[in-house]
Design a protein around this nucleic acid. Structure first.
Length: 141
DNA sequence: GCCAACGTTGGC
DNA sequence: GCCAACGTTGGC
């Protein structure tokens, strides 16, 4: 069981949109980056992830669960792009901002800090625990 | 709105 | 196969 981080611009697909899909969840489509796609291929049903808002908000706003493993991205005919399906699990009582993450030395190695442009990224179990703690999240499903 | 960082494309 | 040019992302 692994941990991940999904980044999205709230104006395109935000936490509210994800919540509205409920347990049915939604495809994490539109990824056109090999690194991000490769991470999605590694995902298993039951893996957990953070939902991160980029741009204006720049904060972890909730947790999601992988409910379907990598399959063709329905938004393109190009077979090289795949995506997983995720569902919202829990809304963060206290969203954790990028500023907070950058200020915490324990989180200085997060991919979010190291490579801010990668839209799907792995999170270590320790980082998961720390960010959940800061966010007031339960860290489980 | 700017710009740095990064990924991709295409000419050679 | 290299690398310059270009496009995109996302933080500031």
């Amino acid at each position: 069981m692994r941990y991940w981080l999904f980044k999205s611009e709230p104006s395109t697909w935000g936490w509210d949109d994800q919540l509205a899909k409920g347990d049915v969840g939604e495809e994490w489509d539109g990824v056109r980056n090999y690194q991000a796609r490769n991470f999605m291929r590694e995902m298993k049903v039951g893996d957990l992830g953070f939902f991160y808002h980029s741009q204006k908000e720049k904060a972890v706003v909730g947790t999601v669960e992988v409910i379907a493993e990598a399959h063709p991205d329905s938004t393109t005919d190009n077979p090289r792009w795949e995506c997983v399906d995720i569902r919202a699990v829990e809304t963060a009582p206290n969203p954790v901002t990028l500023e907070t993450i950058k200020a915490d030395p324990r989180l200085s190695e997060m991919v979010l800090v190291r490579n801010s442009r990668l839209s799907v990224q792995p999170v270590t179990p320790e980082e998961w625990r720390i960010v959940c703690d800061l966010a007031g999240l339960s860290a489980t499903k």
